[in-house]
Amino acid sequence: MNAFWTLVGRDIRLAVREGGALGTALGFFLIVVAMMPLGLGPDLNLLSRIAPGILWIALLLAALLSLGRIFETDYEDGTLDVFATASLPLELVAAAKALAHWLTTGIPLALLAPVLGVLLNLDVKTYPVLMATMLVGTPAVSFLGAIGAALTVKARRGGLLLALIVLPLYVPTLIFGISVISASAGPSGVGSSFLILMAISLISIALGPLAAAAALRIQLQ
């Protein structure tokens, strides 16, 4: 388990020192959200109604941009081959790298979301709910994304392929991420859909490393 946390720490340090990837993801998030009113018109009522959907979709796209780097650099310089022969199972390696991706991408994006909510005239009362759903939902984004990143590590045209493979898998996360926010305005409260969103994240955390490790093993042979 010690090796697991060392690996998480290493990946976080690498991401922080490089810096560029996170900055790009945050910048992309910002610009996608800023483009929406330009496409839809400046009607504040319309914008505040569809703001949660815009924010969630922009977050998914921004996270998608940075998924490639989960395994790519380690595959190219041969570090993954070393991991494959080390005592730490490849499943845990994949889990550590997905966790590091969540910590360095999912959380910053979720924290930036309310700031962008201001641009979309999102009701201030929904900010806590929005951030909570994003913090709970983004593990699914990172761990399901790790599957796609592992599958395409060797592929030509990796980036576009990654989007085609991963976005359908994000459908449940997106639907329940939004439904929590719209339920928070209603009388029944957020309870059940919030729990389902959590369950989706937990399933992804269980499934993602298994599938990602299987995909990596096939390519490292």
């Binding site: 599957i147 389902i196 599938a211």
Partner: peptide, 18 residues
């Protein structure tokens, strides 16, 4: 094959959420 099996695992959840 790995992707097809991941799809099978996720499809019921997608169906349910839709």
């Amino acid at each position: 094959a790995v992707l097809a099996l991941v799809g099978v695992a996720i499809l019921p959840i997608i169906k349910f959420s839709v």
